[in-house]
């Protein structure tokens, strides 16, 4: 068992008897359902790295056609490919996890307007996501524009 924050759930004025320190949820961070939550958090690292890769690509664009061709060759390296597969998996993981939460996060009403049914929200989110992926894919593959 590991300690939680020493002041977790402590009242502003501590009680008059000595207490034992609060314990973290026993299965946290890698047990049971917490594993998915921890992974969810750690995908941030992947997005940070992706961010650097985007900067690298933009830099190469800025440096002219030759630099850009070199950059495109880099993308064929197995490590790059492996990383982008991992990035795709993590984006899908985060997306699905977030989309599952999204419908129940709609407040029951804003003024007179009520949210659409959950299935419609789900459907729209996935449709927009897949649609945007297809469109951007087509652009990057040179099929559009």
């Amino acid at each position: 068992m590991a300690d939680a924050h020493p002041h977790a759930m402590a009242p502003t004025r501590p009680g008059k008897t000595r207490t034992a320190p609060p314990q973290r949820p026993p299965q946290f961070p890698m047990g049971g359902r917490y594993l998915a939550y921890t992974a969810f958090g750690w995908t941030g690292l992947i997005y940070l790295l992706l961010g650097f890769l985007v900067i690298e690509a933009v830099w190469a664009l800025g440096d002219g056609a030759a630099a850009w061709q070199e950059q495109l060759l880099r993308y064929e390296h197995p490590v790059y490919i492996a990383f982008h597969v991992l990035a795709l998996a993590s984006v899908v993981f985060v997306g699905v996890r977030f989309f599952r939460l999204f419908p129940k996060a709609q407040p029951p009403r804003i003024g007179p307007a009520k949210p659409p049914p959950q299935s419609l929200i789900h459907g729209t989110l996935y449709a927009v996501w897949v649609g945007a992926t297809v469109v951007f894919g087509a652009i990057l593959a040179g099929g559009l524009f």
Binding site: M9, G15, P22, Q23, P26
Partner: peptide, 15 residues
């Protein structure tokens, strides 16, 4: 979990 422990299975609830 997450609560200070007062005694055995009893935790501090005032927080």
């Amino acid at each position: 979990a997450n609560f200070p422990v007062v005694r055995d299975l009893v935790v501090e609830l005032d927080g």
